[in-house]
Design a protein around this nucleic acid. Structure first.
Lengths: 112, 112
DNA sequence: TGAGATACCTAGTCCTCTTAGGTATAGTCT
DNA sequence: AGACTATACCTAAGAGGACTAGGTATCTCA
């Protein structure tokens, strides 16, 4: 179980990262995160949709309703140009914090 | 400027890490974090003291008042045995999330 | 005397996850 | 046909923690 705080910190970078790979929709995003985390991160809809709407309000993602080949109506989200910039900032912030933690831990680790 | 969420996620692991290096007190902890982060992380007292008291309530840190050589009264905090275990859990959770993000970013990075 | 660093603390506000619900469609099994 | 599951969207109330802004006190130096 991941702590609430770590989930909160990773929501934006992860969400932006998933959408950077291409247009997607709510349910598929949850599956993608589950897959990327090796089953560790089970995002709830109650956190995903508000998060998506926040990013949309901020102009980082764009959305449109589309009917898939199977006939299902879905709301597809994709990154805006600002969204891509925001992702780079998120990455850089995360890596900076990661460096700080490695320093605190004594730099005994090497991730590949 | 680090986001509120990233600060929240790193508070516990960083605080436990700093105290794992030895007994310390509020002001010194803030300085230590500032130093470890290369000046990036400026913890406020308004977040540090409540955080310390939380960890104390949870039994992860112990505290005692002590008068230093210079004659200043300070409250020194140190890790308990449970605190050390908690630190290991925090580390492992952080690294797990880090792996997930690297996966999402395409594993283009190698940190040393 | 005054300023600044050191040293502790708390209250109100804001933000976001969590829990727990609601609605609807498509496919499958009996 | 009816029931169940997976898919698919959404929101509201509660809780937890950082941020802002305040309070108190001591020590040093000009």
């Amino acid at each position: 179980m991941t702590t609430r705080e770590l989930v909160a910190a990773s929501t934006r970078p992860l969400l932006l990262s998933v959408l950077a790979r291409g247009e997607s929709y709510g349910y598929a995003i949850i599956q993608a995160v589950l897959d990327l985390s090796g089953g560790e991160l089970e995002w709830s809809e109650g956190m995903l949709y508000p998060a998506l709407h926040r990013l949309e309000r901020e102009g980082l993602v764009l959305s449109r309703w589309k009917t898939s080949d199977e006939g299902r109506k879905r709301k597809y989200y994709r990154l805006s140009a600002n969204g891509r910039k925001a992702l780079e900032k998120e990455k850089s912030q995360w890596l900076s914090m990661h460096e700080t933690l490695l320093a605190a831990w004594g730099r005994v680790l090497c991730l590949s």
